[in-house]
């Protein structure tokens, strides 16, 4: 059955990542932990953009909500990291819901600009309350505050395994979501909103739900990022961090479950490599965006799925 094949593929990827924990050299070990956390963010972005057709330019607001929701709690209120992580997830979801209530009255280009403006306002708010957030300079979270129960997140090995656990949960939930009846409705909304309305679905409700789930993912990623790597700064909530998940998703394949991870992995190493040979790594980002929309708008996995469409890989969720 297609379902089992897809599940096997995703479990295989997770097993491979677990194997890398024992095999990868220290430098890549840290990189992959970071990529897995960012891939959760990209998965969240993909749920809104890839599956529901909501092209947002303001997801940094939701990532930032998780980042600061968790970071400020442990830094100023000495909260437990576990509690902070949960708070971060909820902050992302709640903010996505609130933004969605307003932004989803618009569509297309207007939606992009509205989300961009909200994110910009959020970024500026972080700067404005610099006495708490320390603005661009950011907060360094002390080692003692980064304890997830008995797990020390500043330890490389623990951090990798925690990242993998969160990534695995996010990935499998993502898989379950897109294979669920609601996942089908999300795709229907992307494909033809008017048709879906005439099948009895309220476009606003469906999109709001999808955006909120997307916010929960983004919040989780932001909170985990801050707690694991011990840094919370305004730069991580800037417009670049709205573009980043879009880039990952476009590269890996919008509307595919593994696309965000694949895109994050490739883009991370591409920029990493570019930075080592030249200081023009921004050029790589820009060129990647242009080339992708021009020549491969479906991304890697999307193209594979379309090419093999008639028989072979159409089961790729």
């Amino acid at each position: 059955m297609n379902g089992t094949r897809a599940l096997a593929l995703h479990l295989g990827v997770l097993a491979l990542l677990l194997a890398l924990h024992f095999l990868a050299p220290s430098y890549h070990h840290t990189n992959i932990a970071r990529i897995m956390v960012l891939a959760i963010y990209a998965m969240g972005y993909n749920i809104a953009f890839g599956y529901t057709g909501l092209l947002s330019l303001g997801h940094a607001l939701l990532f930032g909500a998780g980042l600061y929701g968790a970071g400020l709690l442990v830094y100023h209120a000495d909260a437990h990291a576990t509690l902070a992580l949960i708070a971060g997830v909820l902050a992302g979801g709640a903010l996505a819901f609130a933004v969605g209530l307003l932004a989803l009255r618009t569509a297309g280009v207007a939606f992009m600009i509205v989300t961009l403006m909200f994110a910009q306002a959020g970024y500026l708010t972080i700067l404005y309350f610099g006495s708490y957030t320390r603005g661009d300079e950011g907060i360094v979270i002390p080692r003692a505050a980064r304890m997830l129960g008995s797990l020390d997140l500043s330890d490389d090995g623990t951090r990798y395994l925690v990242a993998l656990t969160l990534f695995a949960i996010a990935l499998l939930c993502n898989l379950a979501l897109v294979r669920s009846p609601f996942g089908r409705v999300m795709v229907a909304m992307r494909e033809n909103e008017e048709r879906s309305r005439m099948l009895g679905y309220n476009p606003f409700t469906v999109k709001l739900a999808a955006l909120t789930v997307s916010g929960l993912y983004s919040g989780l990623s932001g909170a985990a990022y801050g707690l694991m790597f011990g840094y919370v700064g305004a730069g991580l909530a800037s417009v670049q961090y709205s573009i980043l998940p879009m880039l990952y998703v476009l590269l890996g394949g919008a509307g595919t479950v593994l696309g965000p991870f694949l895109g994050a992995l490739l883009m991370f190493y591409l920029i990493d490599y570019a930075s080592s040979v030249t200081d023009a790594h921004q050029f790589v980002t820009g060129a990647a965006l242009v080339l992708l929309v021009l020549f491969a708008p479906k991304g890697i996995l999307g193209t594979i799925r379309a090419r093999a469409g008639a028989r072979g890989a159409e089961w790729l969720p």
Binding site: R197, M198, G200, N202
Partner: peptide
């Protein structure tokens, strides 16, 4: 609204 009319039985 249209989507509620669908639920009310109009296709």
């Amino acid at each position: 609204p249209a989507h509620k009319r669908v639920k009310a039985g109009i296709a």
